[in-house]
């Protein structure tokens, strides 16, 4: 690159002034159940990785004093050092979402079992209510993982090739950079679905005239977009994988098979039916899932 080109790029970067979107607050939503507590190791680790302040938002039904809560959750000092404890007032879901909106660059962490009224294939009522309010970034996990410690070595970045998926790229790259984890960018060539029509979409090719040329070119193109989407960070190692099938179940299968620690995916803000891909991934991936809200 010539000096003139370097100057040009530097000037554009300086002028376009990208905001620092590094997570600064982790909001852990807890009620007074053991299930909700399973989110703690994840929230705690994320707080450490981001060097963010951990806010514990208590949304249990009874008012409990802070000290009692800490005792009842059996939270030791190591896990909650520096945590800010917030007591809910009013509607619990609105409280959590309001809190995340008030904080700078927040990330919400919660267990799918938060709340009590659960239908088949539905999450806890409070989790459902919180997500109905479309938080910008949230990590969801199922209670099956228990309270065992959580680390981050492998991240699965789900990308359907549409610009709507792009917002997931930066957060995946951020975490990979902070943790040293590798990122597997996965694209599911879906059956039973129309090709995305959004401008700039790059779904798996419909025509593969000569695979020896198409696939390397497609992979390069895909990764260029991933890089342009914010993935180019020092030390971040990306892999690309394409599989065919139903998006939700395939993603979950790969997450389990590859021993993934976190799935990162864009979320359009709705999951009306129980079998939508996002729910399927959250339920079956066997690891926490970071949902990054993206207007679709």
């Amino acid at each position: 690159m010539t000096a003139a080109m370097r100057d040009w790029k530097a000037a554009i970067e300086a002028t376009s002034g990208r905001a620092d979107e590094r997570i600064q607050s982790i909001v852990l939503a807890l009620d007074n159940t053991d299930e909700s507590e399973t989110a703690l190791p994840v929230a705690s680790k994320l707080s450490e990785l981001y060097q963010a302040v951990l806010h514990v938002a208590y949304v249990g039904e009874s008012t409990v004093k802070r000290r009692e809560k800490r005792e009842s959750f059996n939270l030791n000092d190591e896990k909650t050092r520096g945590a800010v404890w917030e007591q809910s007032s009013g509607d619990p879901a609105e409280f959590v979402v309001r809190l995340t909106r008030e904080l700078r660059e927040p990330l919400l962490v919660l267990c799918t079992a938060l709340g009590t009224q659960r239908g088949k294939n539905r999450f806890g009522s409070m989790a459902e209510s919180i997500f109905a309010l479309k938080p910008q970034r949230a990590v969801l996990l199922t209670p099956e993982r228990g309270i065992k410690p959580w680390g981050l070595r492998r991240i699965l970045l789900a990308h359907d090739g549409t610009p709507i998926s792009h917002p997931a790229i930066g957060p995946a790259a951020d975490l990979a950079q902070y943790s040293g984890a590798e990122v597997i960018a996965i694209h599911v060539a879906a059956r039973g679905e129309e090709r995305p029509k959004a401008r700039g979409s790059l779904a798996a090719p419909l025509y593969v005239d000569q695979p020896q040329h198409e696939w390397p070119a497609w992979a390069e193109e895909f990764m260029k977009r991933v890089v342009a989407g914010g993935a180019l960070r020092p030390g971040v190692h990306f892999k690309l994988k394409v599989i065919g099938g139903q998006a939700g179940s395939e993603l979950a299968d790969v997450a389990r098979e590859q021993g993934v620690d976190l799935v990162v995916m864009a979320w359009h803000g709705h999951w009306d039916h129980a079998d939508c891909a996002t729910r399927v991934v959250v339920r079956n991936a066997g690891c926490p899932v970071m949902l990054v809200y993206s207007e679709g």
Partner: peptide, 8 residues
Amino acid sequence: PRSAAMDT
């Protein structure tokens, strides 16, 4: 409908 080639 499908979004990719059958061999994929």
